[in-house]
Design a protein around this nucleic acid. Structure first.
Lengths: 141, 141
DNA sequence: AATATAACTTACGTTAACGTAAACTGCAAT
DNA sequence: ATTGCAGTTTACGTTAACGTAAGTTATATT
């Protein structure tokens, strides 16, 4: 039986399980529900999260890491929903995908230059450190 | 004289010039000063921004784009300041550089997967669009 | 001299994203 | 039976990052 739970893919989760996995509080997860980003099933009054719910939460958390607002994450989530019935909707979605890609590309550039800056700063630090050590060596001699 | 102002590198800026260039309000710039991220010179009561100030502001704005808080941007700015006198300080700075790099690397990964997701979503949209168009063609015939 | 423009200070207001506390429910183990 | 979790709802509190308004000052222009 332990083997079964170890091998079988888990398909539902409690709120605290997800909270643990994604390192957020249960309050936070409920907040995302208040904001309409999640809509878990219920077993009585308990929330039951599906694999799809978990995936959504993962996307939200990832979004947070790169500075997306809950609104923006919500719009991204909507994009991934299948219910795109008409042409108009699909074209608006395509447009949104385009602008999203541009924003993300800008972020990529920003991060790259920041990483470069960090490299420079690190080099500078090491130079200064070495200078200080050299002086110390000289005095100890 | 116009030529001079066109060719010579500008070295000081008014608050509204910077606001325009970086697409923020003057209120925002003053707020960054309240938060100790900037400390421009004064000419009477007017703020005069140096090239260094401009560079700092650029870094702050860039930081915002990737979701940094003003505090975090402030800490980054401190790193780039020269006044690293003692060994202890330098080592702490090096450590901070390390963790910063890790955070940025994580963001790089997050953005990459998001871009991949967008590619998938776009492909899906296009497929659906084509299907809708095919149906339309069939009926018009 | 009067007016416009750009800057300034002070201070209260607003929004997002939760934190925190209080009081309730249902089930499980002692 | 009660104690103790894990979960729930409701609601007020908090922090960051500015927005917005009101009144003041300095400089330049008509």
């Amino acid at each position: 039986m332990v083997l079964a739970t170890m091998l079988k893919e888990k398909t539902t989760y409690s709120i605290s399980e997800l909270a643990q996995e994604f390192d957020v509080t249960t309050r936070t997860i409920r907040h995302y529900e208040d904001m309409q980003l999640l809509l878990p099933a219920r077993q009585g009054q308990k929330r039951i999260y599906s694999l799809a719910d978990r995936t959504k939460l993962k996307l939200i958390v990832r979004g947070k890491r790169i500075g997306l607002s809950l609104q923006e994450s919500g719009e991204l989530l909507n994009m991934y929903e299948p219910g795109q019935s008409n042409v108009d909707q699909l074209e608006r979605t395509l447009e949104y995908i385009g602008t999203s890609r541009q924003k993300l590309s800008q972020q990529l550039r920003d991060i790259s230059t920041m990483l470069d800056d960090l490299d420079e700063a690190e080099a500078g630090c090491k130079v200064e450190l070495k200078a200080l050590h050299d002086i110390a060596d000289q005095h100890s001699h």
